[in-house]
Design a protein around this nucleic acid. Sequence first.
RNA 1: GGGGACGUAGCUCAAUUGGUUAGAGUCCCGGACUGUCGAUCCGGUGGUUGCGGGUUCGAGUCCCGUCGUCCUCGCCA
Length: 595
Amino acid sequence: MLRTQTCGELTAKNEGETTTLIGWVDAVRDHGGVGFVDLRDRYGRTQITLNPEELGGAAPTLRSEQVLRVIGTVELRPEGMRNPKLTTGDIEVRARSVEIIGDCPPLPFDLSEIGGGEITDELRYRYRFLDMRRDSVKNRFLMRSDLLHQMRNFLHAERFVELETPVLTKSTPEGARDFLVPSRLNHGEFYALPQSPQIFKQIFMVAGFDRYMQVVRCFRDEDLRADRQPEFTQLDLELACVEEDDVIDVVERMVAHLIREISGVTVTTPFPRLSYEEAVSVYGTDAPDLRSPLRLETLDDLVDRIPFNIFTGAVEAGGQVKALRVPGGGAWSRKVITELEALAKTYGAGGLAWVKTNADGWVGPLSRFLEGEALELVAERTSAEDGDLLLFVADGSRGVVNNALNALRKEIARREGHADPAKLAPCWVTEFPLFESDDEGNPTPCHHPFTSPHPEDADRLESEPLAVRARAYDLVLNGFEIGGGSIRIHQRELQERVFRRIGLSSEEAKEKFSFLLEALKYGAPPHGGIALGIDRLAMILAGDTSIREVIAFPKTQRGGCPLTGAPGEVASAQLEEIGLSISPRATAQPEPGAD
RNA sequence: GGGGACGUAGCUCAAUUGGUUAGAGUCCCGGACUGUCGAUCCGGUGGUUGCGGGUUCGAGUCCCGUCGUCCUCGCCA
């Protein structure tokens, strides 16, 4: 080894020892006759004392982030010079040799975590190797490493088998847009990168592995968001001979264990469970943030007694009227409410109706319609009290009402301090519909086409497909979907009925999924599983609002990698090899000075 | 594809109603200093105001376009 200790382990016990350390220059404090260097590595910081005379006069010029190899003696610091903030703060290393073994130019940005403003993400990711030297960034990746380690330990102890699946696989018709990889050996044909290893893991169940796990990269070519990257990591699980409760049980024991180990927080099990219908009704979303106590109330049955034609019109059009009660919101200004209305409008709401109570009684634009009996009914339904604000969204589309109110509920939670990142509120959402209606009104899977219908509803698959519940469940944490899974279809006959229902002919089904259908013929046990989004889980445990913070080399919103510059053009010879040519439109650059 | 915010020194930011030579901190370079731990003090270098066009006597500031970053709607089985 080139070093005898790390920068985090020398203490008073090592007094008098000779040590050799290697680390980065964290700070230089030069006092002329004496100088100090904080040497930093992954494990900590150690103060080096420099005396120009003892170093033979010609001491090198030291600068931040150079890599130094220091040979010296461990000495106790003089009384009053100790630094209680460092574990190595009782000692210092008096250098007799300092060598720059990795020089470093002036830095493109300030690594100091104290003072200074925020650096733009693009710059941080372009110089991620520098960014990661900062404690706050480094610690996120150490945490993520612990998280994966704890997951594997837990699951291996539960007799899961870690198996791998291909990255070059086959494009499937459903779901997100695939990333395609051209085949050199088969011109005109393409692999697809997996959106998830769904079918492979079901085949592992048919093979009898019984309990499968994999930490696996998945790819979806869709637009990016703060919580979505084109490649992301899942913890993928599948179990044979199980029902919903078995999957839910093992996952919530694991998640409670992870949260305890990583965050030191105890969450009680079992986690709360809500049906999909209940979640949408009460929170306006299938991924509710249970840290906020606010609830939505449906007023559809009261609109006949509220003389406000926007409300009655919404219900007559097949939509809804729902209210959100904000305790204490009576004190909120018109400006704040206008901001909330603007938010609601981004989700397609025509406007935001509201009333509030203050010393003048009920005031607000809606108050002239809400009087007497109507007011009493609404106040009773929403449990409104003096000093409250009531917000109403009415629309002919239930989706608009729920999306807008979910956004308002989250925004209000943020403003009221209910979105404390240290609080962790997991829940399960169950009994999703098996299908939703696509643009043409045809049923399309809510989850994926291998999800088993609820046994009570299976006979309505053909007659009332949209009313069929699925044996699907999502794990939600602080308003983020961090996992989703289901009990799968393990009978070929039922699987073919579902394919038919979503408009896949038996030829198409055979073409796309013949390997699964084939496997299901050969003795498939009942099975089910789940996939957890590791990036999102790590993000929440780190208290962040973007998964980029816990991804080592993330992509920008346009899908670029600031570090490597990917994606990039390739040599024409490479294109020829795979039999591809690029259409001119895609590569045409406006020529400077043209026209 | 749509909406919004931002883009000024390597970095973080400022610049009054459109008005003189675009400033400060930090970094970097030089100097002073034997106990600092965000060392301090003195001096200095550093600018295509993202890019292109327009309005104007005059544009960092106003207008149009474009590029980039971030947030978001659509999209994400």
